[in-house]
Write a protein that binds this DNA or RNA. Structure first.
Lengths: 407, 407
DNA sequence: GAGGATTCTTCAGTCACTAAACAAAGAAAG
DNA sequence: CTTTCTTTGTTTAGTGACTGAAGAATCCTC
């Protein structure tokens, strides 16, 4: 238990930097207490971070009888990151500083069915415009995060964008990105276990366990759209019945609303009249507006969806032993006020570990642009936070061993 | 990306040992490839392990054009661990070697309502008897693992047992223990992501993500007994409706069977006539036997339970992106053959990430004593495997900082 | 302003790990 | 059998992160 608490250079530096970020403001002594390292080590590590311009001394604490502690803060404008959200109909770009705060933001039309090379060229120009709009030097930008609902389909896209922009590109899915964004922005604790419930046109969840993002072996962790809420429910494209997505997803809400002639007219639903990508999101927004205007039928549809989602959120909280649940994504940005109280009530009533700790349910303050902000946060995290600690343990251990000759 | 891949002494030693265990048989070159460390480091680490008697050279591989590789194996009988499973009605003790193989096993009556001090004294005697039965020296026993359905209620119990036996005691819950036992025994890969679905008188799941046990911030991770499968289902003690436990747990199966006069007689159910702890387990076993004898009604009840459980297992697999699901625990030991095909079919049909990888569903080869074996495995793991890598990041970072005086 | 408390830095020593030379063991070619 | 080459494993010097302890700097109290 005692003895040295050694770690690599990179991860010590990164861990200290992450602590400064997470704490907002902290002294060297505070870092000593938080890390378990000695004062000497912290002293040299902090000097390095100050020399690089990443951290700055920003004041003093009151004395506790001796020399006052010098407070340290992240120099938020030392580095930047670009976040890009590829949605079906739109591409959203944000430039954030080290603290995850948005310093520039633009939104442009989606790719449609244009050639990949053309889209990449256009995106590179739009990224340039984003950066130029605030006059940040290129070499202070750490990289570009590119998120979408199906990142596995965008590998070549990412590589092309990397060549076109000259920035390192990382890919991820929107829900995970949103979770990392919430984590980075400091809304939840540094080591907390939480999920970001993401409601776009689909339903997903980004999962952070004990401060570490969990993606699963194939990157599909947090897939809650196909939780079963009714074994005899309507069929789903996944092959099962009564899936959350079919019962309560934005698509289902919109379908139910369109089937209601009066509501369709009152809310001004687009129906099938616009092009394929947009209408679900647009009509879901229209329904939400109708509910806010007091349309009882619209409100009932949303509340029905919220109850199903609440039960699924409880399942997620039970399985993962969550401490915090953050609602985020474009659809929650619009209808969060309807969903939030329903989810809160459900998790307060029937979360199985609530004797040990409650689940705090919150609406993201930046639900609409959460994926793009998260995309930037992924870059910040991948550049500044401990890589994977520990060592790789390949599963095919015996692979490569020649045939054995037992003595 | 390049540069040294440093780690602490303890974790390098432990990681190498864990690799030797996981691989079964591996050469020094194999360890170099698997760890990324250099030959020199592996050479010294392995020498230390051989000096301690934990590892032994056991033969040669065929030459690939040069010197033959010397193969290394875990010396299974170098150390031992005691595993104890506190069930409602019985206490099961196992003594395992380093490989997790059972070298001695006894089962005694449960604690009933005796005084804690008396029970602890009796358990200490029974542990002594277990150890003496195979004549293992006391100082080669690493510790004692104590698992139950509600370990939080057994803290003092564990401390008393630690004093009485002189062995370090670790506590955990039965489902997590079972998962660790499966992992240690090598049925699943070293870095695999899997869950042990535990069916005793309750329902639980032990979760291992990427080779690391996940317990959750309050130790309640894997709680699937209260997944909702029917929002309008029967009420549950947790406050919700249609929970898995109420619809398909062994208690529910037994209740349904008891309500059936013909089945009760055919299976010889004890009903409410025996004392409180045993009957559910006993009657569930009786129903399973009846189903095996061809009783259609008993089989139908079990298959109904299996279908609900299968849907819940799919939920777990979707949320956690599982690669493997192991069925274990006393009730699966009895009725596993009924449940297994139903779960397999469900996960084959509707697991959402099956395009990326299938979920392999297996019945534990030692389902009945899995908790006790797992308890011993927890001791092995806590003594021999990397502690937590990285550094602790307390959540109350600003705590202890005096008031700040901004410059 | 002396003395004590607290914060922060400096520096020598320690230890895990690497790189590279070396030794040992076997295969292949003559 | 000898030579040469390949592969495996060990030894050794060097590197760098970290600790511990001493010292410097700063602030409070009396």
């Amino acid at each position: 238990m005692s003895g040295p608490a050694r770690m690599t250079h990179a991860s010590t530096r990164a861990a200290v930097l992450d602590l400064v970020r997470a704490a907002g403001m902290i002294s060297r002594v505070g870092l000593v207490n938080a890390t378990g390292l000695t004062g000497g080590t912290i002293s040299t590590v902090v000097r390095g971070l100050i020399d690089e311009g990443l951290v700055a001394e920003t004041g003093h604490a009151e004395s506790t009888g001796g020399k006052r502690r010098v407070m340290l803060q992240l120099n938020h404008f030392a580095r930047y990151a670009v976040g890009v959200h590829l949605d079906e109909a739109r591409i959203t770009y944000v430039l954030t500083n080290l603290g995850g705060a948005v310093v520039a933001r633009i939104s442009r039309a989606g790719s449609g069915d244009a050639e990949v090379s053309d889209v990449v060229a256009r995106m590179a120009r739009e990224v340039d415009a984003l950066i130029d709009s605030v006059g940040v030097e290129r070499d202070r930008i750490l990289g570009l995060g590119l998120v979408s609902a199906r990142p596995s389909e965008h590998h070549e896209f990412g590589q092309a964008l990397e060549r076109a922009t000259g920035l390192p590109v990382v890919l991820d899915n929107d829900a995970t990105a949103a979770a990392i964004g919430e984590h980075w922005s400091g809304g939840v604790g540094a080591t907390s276990t939480f999920a970001a419930l993401y409601l776009g046109t689909g339903i997903g969840a980004g999962v952070v366990l004990g401060g570490t993002t969990y993606r699963g072996p194939s990157g599909h962790a947090g897939e809650i759209g196909h939780l079963c809420l009714d074994v005899d429910g309507p069929e789903c494209r996944c092959g099962a019945r009564g899936c959350l997505e079919v019962l309560a997803g934005p698509g289902a809400v919109v379908a139910q609303a369109r089937a209601d002639r009066a509501l369709s007219r009152a809310a001004g639903l687009a129906g099938g009249r616009t092009r394929a990508a947009a209408p679900v999101a647009a009509d879901f927004a229209a329904i939400s507006r109708a509910a806010r205007r007091g349309n009882a039928r619209a409100l009932a549809l949303l509340e029905r969806s919220a109850r199903y989602l609440a039960v699924s959120a409880r399942a997620l909280a039970n399985v993962l032993d969550l401490e915090v649940l953050v609602l985020t994504g474009p659809s929650f940005a619009i209808a969060g006020s309807v969903y939030l109280p329903v989810l809160r009530a459900e998790l307060d009533r029937a979360f199985i570990a609530r004797a040990a700790h409650p689940v705090s349910v919150r609406l993201s303050p930046s639900a609409a642009s959460a994926p793009a902000i998260g995309a930037a946060a992924i870059v910040l995290q991948s550049e500044l936070v401990p890589r994977q600690t520990g060592m790789r343990l390949p599963d095919d251990l015996a692979a490569g061993e020649p045939p054995v000759f037992v003595r």
